[in-house]
Amino acid sequence: MSQEHAHPNYIKIWAILTFLLFVSIVGPMAGIQAVTLITAFGIAVVKAAMVGAYFMHLNIEKRYVWYMLFTALIFLGLFFFGTSPDVLKAEGTNWVNPSPEQAHAETDGGGSHH
């Protein structure tokens, strides 16, 4: 009972995706970190959006499907912001979490940091 809808030119979209893939591989060769971040992750987002919109037909799907998916991503973002102060950081207010190599080097690494 799939609804009938017009199909876009999928080959064209695939060609654009392939081109973007090429850019994301070439980007890091410039050796500039900012450029790498943009070409790697920026383009990943663009590609994902294109696959989602045209291949998964999110562009013609009911609006709230898009909200459903986006809500899941928001919760992940929430998890990241709640957890990163403890896990991502190596030190914070009144605590340090040295990496194992450092820990052996400075055993008296405690003390207050604020």
Partner: peptide, 12 residues
């Protein structure tokens, strides 16, 4: 990416 193209063509 190419296999994604194929499955969407299959759907079409």
């Amino acid at each position: 990416l190419t296999s994604s193209l194929f499955i969407v063509l299959a759907h079409q």
